[in-house]
Design a protein around this nucleic acid. Structure first.
Lengths: 190, 190
DNA sequence: TTCTTTTCTTAAACCAGTTCAATTTTTTGG
DNA sequence: CCAAAAAATTGAACTGGTTTAAGAAAAGAA
């Protein structure tokens, strides 16, 4: 079951069999049903989470429980609230399964030991974080320089298969506008 | 001159003297005058850039040369276009000095060797990237959940000394609205 | 299948923020 | 110190996107 993770790590920093075994010993698998939560506002994020299959969303809520989707994560992506993880303080974010999802987790209590035993993983997580940072910067640029309609057209052209997997109101939230506005765009012409 | 960098690294991953020497041997210092460019659209980003003093801004431009500021970096921050750096392809971004600035650079050609000689730096850059990623995620959340006025008030309350250092039109661009709108907000009441 | 919940659509009124253009203030360089 | 450039302000007209509310369609559960 953890093969997906090992495979992903090996793409960036090839591991020996021993190292793979250590990684396996430090991970656990969790199956989430659609709509189940991996993390809820008020809890501490105690794990690094790798998505082996399925889809998660990370969202914040305001006083009136309006949701703002900050991230999606699908197969081979990590979803971590670094702030809560590092400070050990309760998060203000929620992480929920958009569909049935398999998550491979590394717990806070074993992460530092794991990094000592398999120092190569420092490199792996560096590369992962740098890639995610680049993606995050691109997203900021896109939000700042393009209209809602442009963002929608670009996203659905770039990730048509993903758009099929999620409800439109979630896509609207992720793209930074209302579901009603998304309907308007779509009504114009597909 | 590179003391600022060594000091910063040591905060996260203490180095031996030998390791410090290796780092020094792999870095170079560049002094930038206000408005001078560190990177221009069309060039390849060939260095990791650490700001020892001063301030840089990273911005993109559209067809009509309108600028959108994506990031600022001040003392003890890194400013890197990971995408261009890793792919070795020309960037679409610009990095320019907002004031006279001292940059400590690690060139692409020496980075991998440096990381091999001082593997601790993998950890250092991992932590740096994860922190920057967290900051980037927070920024997205802020843009999505707060109005322009809220963003301005929050930012100038949180970083009053920084607000003094930059022209208001740059702050407006960074916060995601026009200079005219910033004037309006300020006219209401400081 | 039928009932219930969730998701999507439509339309009118509205508003946060933009655009454009003119003017004033501040900063910079020689 | 002055001239020129850069930055900030103001106001009127405008627009991309929101809000509210109601109804239609699709998906789930039993």
């Amino acid at each position: 079951m953890q093969d997906a993770l090992l495979h992903h790590i090996n793409k960036f920093t090839p591991l020996t069999e021993d190292e793979e075994d250590i990684v396996l010993a430090c991970t656990s698998v969790q199956q989430l049903k659609k709509k189940e939560f991996l993390l809820k506002k008020g809890q501490v994020c105690t794990t690094y989470n790798f998505i082996a299959g399925g889809c998660l969303r990370c969202f914040s809520t305001d006083d009136e429980d309006n949701e703002t989707i900050l991230q999606f994560a699908i197969e081979n992506w990590w979803m971590i609230d670094y702030s809560s993880f590092n400070t050990r303080k309760p998060t203000h974010l929620n992480i929920q399964a958009v569909e049935n999802t398999v998550v491979i987790k590394i717990h806070y209590d074993v992460l530092e030991t794991l990094l000592e035993k398999v120092p190569k993983l420092e490199r792996y997580f560096r590369i992962i974080a740098q890639r995610a940072l680049d993606a995050s910067h691109r997203r900021i640029e896109y939000v700042y320089t393009r209209s809602g309609e442009e963002r929608y057209r670009y996203f659905s052209k770039s990730f048509p298969q993903f758009v099929q997997r999620i409800p439109q109101y979630m896509l609207a939230s992720y793209l930074g506008f209302t579901p009603e506005f998304l309907s308007k765009i779509r009504a114009k012409k597909i």
